[in-house]
Write a protein that binds this DNA or RNA. Structure first.
Lengths: 253, 253
DNA sequence: CCTCTCGATGAATCCATCT
DNA sequence: AAGATGGATTCATCGAGAG
C-alpha cells in the first residue's frame, strides 16, 4: 500500500477509501479471509424505496436512532447490485490466498443475487449460514423476516484436513442486534467472533466495508491480523476508537 | 377431477399421478395454499432425467442471471431443475386463489434457483424461512450445512387485514428430522403443522409432491382441507394409511 | 435479591395520501 | 401517472423500575 492508513496498530490497518480502489492496491494472496457486510441496497422492491436515506429505510418511524450517520452506496437495483458485487469480489479473489474463504452478509431479498455474484467473481459457493434475530418485527398474516444470511465460499478447493485440531463451525447463529449501536446495521460482536474462526489460525481477515468495525474488532479479539476499508470518515473514526480500546473479552466464548 | 382419487375422506383427496397432469385438471382458484417439498434429487439432478427432456434451454426469470458464468459445476442441473419448477409452479398459480400462498422446501444449493423459478412461475416472492436441524453432520474447517429453507410467495398482492385476529408466523423453525421415517426427506410433523397455519382459516392445502404425506396430515390436523398428489404407489399407500389414522393431537400447539 | 410489570424497539411491510 | 412520504400494524426480547 502506498497511502498511509487511517489507523493502524500491531495487528492491522484501516484504510479510508473506496473498497474497489483500496482492494486494487493490496498484494496478491495476502489475506486468508474476506468477511464483510456490503450495503444491501435492499429495503424496497421499487427504485424509489431504495433512494431514500438509510435512516429512513431501515429505521421504524418511532425510533430514536436518527442520529446515526447515513451509509452511502445503498441505492442500487438488484442487477446492478449483483454486478457491483461481482466487480469487487473478483478483485478480492486475487487478494485472498488460494484455499481462503469469503463470508458475505445479506438479507433474504439479495441472497440469490449475492450467491450469483460470489460465483461470478470467481469464488466457489459453499453454503448459507442463517443468523436468526428473535426480536425481528412481526408481520400480520405472514412469516416474519427474522433472519439475515451469510453466503460463503472459497477461492478454489478447500482440502479437508483430517487433522486432530480440525474445528467444526456451526451452520446457524442466534443473537439479537446490539442494543446500543454506532451503525444502523451493526452486527453482534459475539456472532462475528464465532464467524471469524473460519479463518486459518494466525491468518489475516479483510473487511472492505468495515462500517463500525465489528468484524475487525472480532478478528483482533480472536487473535487474527486484520485489514479494513471504510469510505465514510465518521465511521473510520468509530472504527479507530473501537480498535484502540483494550478488550477484557479477548477470545469471546 | 375426472379420475377417481387413490384415497379420500371428508377433508381431502389424494391423487396418484404426475404432478403436472393432475394440476392441469384442478379447477382455477380452488385452493388457498401450495405447500410442498419438490424432489430436488430426482426431479432433474440425475443425468438420465435430463437426457429424457427436451427444450430446457432457457430459464425465463427476471433476476438477470442468464449471463453469469458456470455455477459451481452443477449449473445445468440447477437450470433444468428451475425450468421444471417454473412449469408446474405456473400451473399451480392458476389453481391457487388470488392472495393465496406457495411454500417450497429447498436446500441451500437450490435456494436461488427455487426463488427464480417461483417468480418465473408468476408468483410474488415474499421471503425465506430457515428450518434448522441441530443434528447435522459436522464438516471439518467449514460451516455445517444444518438448515433447509422454505421459499415462499403469493399469487398477487396479499392485502394486510387489519383485523384483531391477525396472526404473525415465526420466520424460523428449529427441529430435528423425525427419527423414524417412511420417506427419505420426511419433515417433522410439528414443523409442518406450524407452517400450514399460513393458510387462511378453513382453507385448502395443496401438495403436488406429497411423499409420505406429512404436509397433508399436518393440514388435516390443523383443520384445513387438503389435496395431495403422489406419483409412487408405495408412497400413496403410506399417505392413505397416515391420513386414515386418528390423531390424538389434532390442532397441535 | 428475585419477580413482575411496563415500555421501548427492530436492515419490515403495506397502503392511503401527497407531490 | 409514477414516485415519495408518513402512519399504522405486528410481538419477542431486554432494560428499567417497582414491589
Amino acid at each position: 500500500m502506498t497511502a498511509k492508513p487511517f489507523y493502524e496498530d500491531e495487528s492491522g490497518q484501516l484504510h479510508k477509501g473506496e473498497a474497489l480502489s483500496v482492494l486494487a492496491n493490496l498484494p496478491d494472496a495476502s489475506v486468508d479471509a474476506l468477511i464483510t457486510d456490503p450495503p444491501y441496497s435492499s429495503g424496497g422492491m421499487v427504485r424509489g424505496d431504495r433512494a431514500g436515506s438509510t435512516g429512513k429505510k431501515y429505521i421504524s418511524s418511532d425510533s430514536g436512532n436518527q442520529a446515526l450517520p447515513d451509509f452511502s452506496g445503498d441505492s442500487r437495483d438488484q442487477r446492478s447490485y449483483g454486478y457491483w458485487c461481482a466487480l469487487w469480489l473478483a478483485e478480492a479473489l486475487r487478494v485472498v490466498r488460494p484455499g481462503g474463504v469469503a463470508l458475505l452478509f445479506t438479507d433474504w431479498r439479495q441472497l440469490p443475487a449475492t450467491s450469483d455474484a460470489l460465483q461470478a467473481g470467481g469464488w466457489i459457493w459453499r453454503g448459507i449460514v442463517p443468523w436468526y434475530k428473535p426480536i425481528a418485527r412481526p408481520m400480520p398474516d405472514r412469516f416474519t423476516a427474522s433472519c439475515e444470511y451469510v453466503v460463503w465460499g472459497s477461492r478454489g478447493p478447500m482440502p479437508v484436513e483430517m487433522v486432530a485440531g480440525a474445528k467444526t463451525l456451526p451452520g446457524f447463529y442466534q443473537a439479537n442486534p446490539p442494543r446500543e449501536r454506532d451503525h444502523q446495521t451493526q452486527k453482534p460482536l459475539d456472532v462475528m467472533a464465532k464467524l471469524v474462526r473460519i479463518t486459518a489460525a494466525g491468518g489475516t481477515v479483510l473487511d472492505p466495508f468495515a462500517g463500525s468495525g465489528t468484524t475487525l474488532r472480532a478478528a483482533k479479539d480472536e487473535g487474527y491480523r486484520w485489514i479494513g476499508v471504510e469510505r465514510e470518515e465518521a465511521y473510520c473514526e468509530v472504527i479507530a476508537k473501537r480498535l484502540a480500546q483494550d478488550t477484557l473479552f479477548g477470545g469471546v466464548a
